[in-house]
Amino acid sequence: MTDMGLAVRSLEKSFGGVIAVNNLNFDLPVGQLLALIGPNGAGKSTSFNILNGQLKPTSGTVKFKGVELVGLSPKEIWRHGVGRTFQITATYASMTVCENVQMALLSYHRRLYSLLPIAARLYREEALALLEHVGMVDQENRPCSVLAYGDLKRVELAVALANNPTLLLMDEPTAGMAPKERIELMALTNKIVNERGISVLFTEHDMDVVFTHADRIIVLDRGTLVAEGTPEEVRNDEHVRRIYLGSHHA
């Protein structure tokens, strides 16, 4: 592995004695789409929130481009080039699509305490370029509160790309979307990863999405990593079949 990727070592998190994440180790090299899967309660969200800085792990390290992320705030982690989308979209309902992206750009360019310029006029071109990227430019002037769910996901993606991230954390990127939209969104994600050379870590319930789009998959069960490998390897893993796919189809 290289210095440029993400390296998670011996990550542990317990809530009052209940172990949510147990000795988690994995690497994410640059340019890869890594899927994190597992049944409900496997510790996916906890891991995500640790990587994002919303939770502090009980022990362990998370190195990104050689920098220790544990102990940093979400804001600082973001400054290191980590973007994030949420399972339930988190956008600014009272702003337009374009303003949502501009907001992230304002933060990226450190203009948050600026009291003179009109915000809607700043970084508009950059924002439109990002929206172009995700195919939302024609809706740039609509309020986010009225968008279809799939479109919100795209807006989130554009927002997450605003700081030129080298790592994207996507929590259930296709949750709540129609099958056709899922394919479109993941194709878009694939395209962006290839164009920009960034890595993506995502969780996902939809196995079709996972096995079609992930370069590699890691499987969590009750906080422990139980399998890791290419989609092919994971698909054939006995353990995974038993604890995960088995229960999934039950």
Binding site: N52, P74, Y92, A119
Partner: peptide, 20 residues
């Protein structure tokens, strides 16, 4: 202004704001 927008952003979604 950006200051006002950022304030409104924190109201609309603190989660999103922290992650940008």
């Amino acid at each position: 202004t950006p200051f006002g927008y950022a304030m409104r952003a924190c109201r609309d979604s603190a989660l999103r704001s922290a992650s940008i």
